[in-house]
């Protein structure tokens, strides 16, 4: 697991973004300045990211997200840890998710 992502932490979408689902794509729209690198960009997620994103809702620990995905994909949890940590790191850098207290 990543040094930056703790399995016991809970993350939720930031209130500084708007998340939309349009024709099956998740589109993340910055609402305030300082989200992403440029002021005119929107963001979307790849297929892996989309599946993980749907579980980052402020109610599950990272460990629970991995466990649920492992059950759904019938894959070892160890294989999924890297993807979950990778997405969370990207989202944290872009300030699109926040850690819940």
């Amino acid at each position: 697991m990543s040094d930056k992502i703790d399995l016991d932490r809970i993350y939720a979408p930031s209130e500084d973004i708007v998340v939309r689902e349009i024709e099956g794509e998740i589109v993340i729209v910055p609402l305030v300045s300082g989200i992403g690198d440029m002021e005119d960009e929107l963001f979307t997620l790849n297929e892996t990211g989309r599946d993980i994103w749907n579980k980052i809702d402020g109610s599950r620990t990272v460990a629970a997200v991995i466990r649920e995905l492992a059950e759904e994909y019938e894959a070892p949890a160890g294989l999924l840890e890297g993807d979950v940590a990778g997405l969370l790191e990207e989202l944290l850098v872009r300030k699109m998710v926040v850690e819940k207290e």
């Binding site: 349009i22 024709e23 794509e25 589109v27 993340i28 992403g36 690198d37 440029m38 005119d40 960009e41 929107l42 963001f43 979307t44 997620l45 790849n46 297929e47 892996t48 990211g49 599946d51 993980i52 995905l69 994909y73 894959a75 294989l79 999924l80 890297g82 993807d83 990778g86 997405l87 990207e90 989202l91 872009r94 699109m96």
Partner: peptide, 21 residues
């Protein structure tokens, strides 16, 4: 289920988000 660059940018004016529908 392995991915890199999970978050993709859509630059202003880019209309290729929906290739089919």
């Amino acid at each position: 289920m392995t991915g890199t660059a999970y978050v993709k940018k859509i630059r202003s004016g880019e209309a290729r988000l929906w290739p089919s529908r």
